[in-house]
Design a protein around this nucleic acid. Structure first.
Length: 269
DNA sequence: ATGGTTGAGCGTCAA
């Protein structure tokens, strides 16, 4: 027997500022698990009552002051995984992983916030870009070195739009951090450590898909200069159980919202 | 080519 599992991911850009918007996310998507990035809250200030307020009685989080931070809110029990390294040795709270105690069998869940990489797409001139490439390489090597994963899901703000139609203009973004060849090649190599892009499973590669629109636009919908930076990948054994995907574009119009919108995949797992 | 906006938390830095 399998059971329905909906997993959502959202770069919330401050959990404390936008915790009420979690209610809208739950209303729209009814997820079993919510993975958050850029919580921007140290663990000792994590709003401990927020998950239960929205029906999530199980939580794991890793945060720091001002920057980064990840969290997993779950309706099913979870246990933390502690096997992953401290990526790039920075201790910067960009990854958290758990085993979800799904009745039909445990599911390994990874929630990542990949470095944005700064503005200059040159690792010799820009240490943040070097960090981003190194982070992706390190993750690729780590997953590649493991036995092929089963019942595994990897989500997050990966800060890279890998495909031509994951950005509003492939040509104009080829030298813009998030869509440069070393980044897209790096992300696809990571994915090829044996994951399936669960959103593209449903949407052909020639169809535009975005999950992020800059704040620096007068009218994000009119200009529609988006990028698909937020991803949900599953291990190949879960592919046949995929039921559907939702990119909650409407969330970009919520009051005081994030510049990212939630992404959700439903599966039988 | 440049500038445009937001958050954390009080300087600017990061995105």
């Amino acid at each position: 027997m399998t059971q329905r599992l909906r997993i959502a991911t959202w770069n919330i850009n401050s959990l404390r500022l936008r915790r009420a918007l979690l209610g809208r996310l739950v209303e729209a998507l009814d997820p079993d698990v919510i993975c958050l990035q850029e919580t921007k809250v140290p663990d000792e200030l994590f709003p401990a009552d927020a998950p239960a307020e929205f029906g999530f009685n199980h939580v794991a989080f890793r945060g720091m002051k001002s920057y980064n931070g990840v969290a997993i809110l779950s309706r099913v029990p979870l246990s933390p995984l502690t096997t992953a390294p401290d990526w790039c040795g920075k201790g910067d709270c960009r990854h958290i992983s758990v085993m979800l105690d799904v009745p039909s069998g445990p599911v390994e869940l990874h929630n990542f916030y990949v470095p944005a990489g700064g503005d200059i797409p040159d690792r010799t001139q820009n240490a943040k870009f070097a960090h981003k490439l190194d982070f992706v390489s390190e993750a690729t090597l780590w997953f590649a070195a493991r036995p092929p994963l089963t019942r595994a899901v990897l989500v997050g703000d990966l800060n890279i739009a890998p495909l031509e139609h994951d950005v509003w203009s492939h040509k104009q973004l080829l030298d813009v951090v998030s869509h440069t060849p070393p980044e897209t090649a790096g992300l696809l190599a990571w994915q090829q450590t044996r994951f399936v892009d669960a959103v593209r499973h449903f949407v052909p590669a020639d169809e535009k898909l975005y999950t992020w629109w800059s704040y620096r636009n007068r009218d994000w919908r009119a200009s529609n200069r988006g990028r698909r930076l937020d991803h949900i990948w599953v291990s190949p054994d879960l592919q046949d159980g995929l039921v559907g995907q939702t990119i909650l574009t409407d969330a970009r119009d919520w009051p005081q919202t994030s510049d990212h919108v939630p992404v959700c995949v439903e599966m039988e797992a």
